[in-house]
Computed example of a mutant assay.
Amino acid sequence: MTSTAPLDPTSIRRAPKVLLHDHLDGGLRPATVLALARETGYAELPADTEQGLARWFRESADSGSLVRYLETFAHTVGVMQTREALVRVASECAQDLAADGVVYAESRFAPEQHTDGGLTLEEVVEAVLEGFAEGCAAAASAGHPIRVGVLVTAMRHAARSREIAELAVTYRDAGVVGFDIAGAEAGYPPTRHLDAFEYLRQANAHFTIHAGEAFGLPSIHEALQWCGAERLGHGVRIVDDIAVAADGTATLGRLAAYVRDQRIPLELCPSSNVQTGAAASVAEHPFGLLAALRFRVTVNTDNRLMSDCTMTSEMSALVEAFGYGWSDLQRFTINAMKSSFLHFDERLAIIDDVIKPGYAVLIG
């Protein structure tokens, strides 16, 4: 006789997970921030203890403002300006995710933000790739195999998106799986970077776009219909195009219907979305409605340091808020794996050989 594993954090941590939206500079260990600050001479940290620094990041990110949320990155980026620092941070990222049960992750970072110490864009990318290779090997040795793909990100307010897009193509056979743009949405529409997106499409390269987080439907429309995004980074504001009647009946607008019909993945980040004001609480997050309407929802952490979260805690919060069971968590995980930027056969192998067997053990 078989039995279902309890839906608690211990069991959820054992479940295989897929993470598509996680920022490398948003997931440092507080102890590592302190150590790198000492090693690099960075003297701007707002606290000098591990606990104090962790608390500062969380409280600063809880402002309800995306702009203030983004300001916390000055300190993590500030200590990531050497090759050694980048290798260490990437290695620890892979190991931390693997220990949390993540079997495939796509980690994103902006190379242009790590050149203040004299590194070239290419040297930045190569250091991060080296770190992930080191971290994946260490995780496998510890019994927690993980595969990590890199997304190189351009900043919306800058003018280097074409350069960064070229990096994505140059290193796509070395571990870079795609491209992204990030930063404050208001005033910086994705259409400012059309040349980068046209270049990527012509090169048969993958890309996602941060859209529909702090800004609404126009940002999502431009990302999809003007730029050709394959996924939406966050995309939570697609709910603005859905009307829910008193009896619970939902009517989708044309953009929402297009997103659902085309199976465009939504890289939803519940805790982060609450912090930046995109949702009032996890219980009120549009994730529940979007999942019920069968949008291709995925669960993500965004910035583990600022949100003090893991994939286990994000899934646990969704279980508590919406009463999800193991079959729901498996569906969200398979949604993410289907939506990754790996080749189809590689996606299928992870679904069939890792995810489904892993959940079968838990479901019983």
Rank of each mutant, 00 (worst) to 15 (best):
M1K: 13
T4P: 06
T4C: 10
P9R: 09
S11E: 06
I12E: 00
V18C: 08
L20S: 01
G26I: 04
T32I: 09
A35P: 11
R38L: 12
E39D: 13
T40R: 03
A43Y: 05
A43V: 13
T49E: 05
E50Y: 13
Q51E: 14
A54Q: 11
W56T: 01
R58G: 10
G64F: 05
S65K: 04
A74S: 14
V79W: 08
T82Q: 02
A85Q: 06
A85F: 02
L86H: 03
E106S: 11
E106C: 09
Q113L: 15
L121D: 07
V128D: 00
A133I: 10
A133M: 07
G135V: 08
A138K: 10
A139N: 04
A142K: 12
I146G: 00
R147N: 08
L151R: 01
A154Q: 04
M155Q: 15
R156N: 10
R156M: 15
S161D: 13
R162M: 14
I164R: 00
R172N: 13
G178F: 06
Y188H: 15
T191M: 11
H193W: 09
A196W: 08
L200D: 12
A203E: 10
A203P: 03
H210S: 14
H221P: 02
L224T: 05
E230L: 00
R231Q: 09
D240C: 04
D240W: 02
I242L: 06
V244A: 06
V244S: 02
A246P: 07
G248D: 09
A250P: 00
G253H: 10
Y258H: 15
V259E: 00
D261H: 12
D261M: 13
R263G: 09
I264N: 01
I264S: 00
P265I: 09
E267Q: 02
C269S: 10
P270W: 01
S271K: 12
A278Y: 03
A280M: 06
E284Q: 12
P286I: 03
P286T: 04
G288W: 04
L289T: 12
L290F: 02
L290K: 03
A291P: 12
V297P: 03
R304S: 04
S307P: 02
C309E: 07
S313H: 11
E314K: 07
G323I: 03
G325T: 11
S327I: 11
L329V: 01
R331P: 10
A336P: 03
I351L: 07
D352F: 13
I355G: 00
K356G: 00
P357D: 07
G358P: 05
Y359L: 07
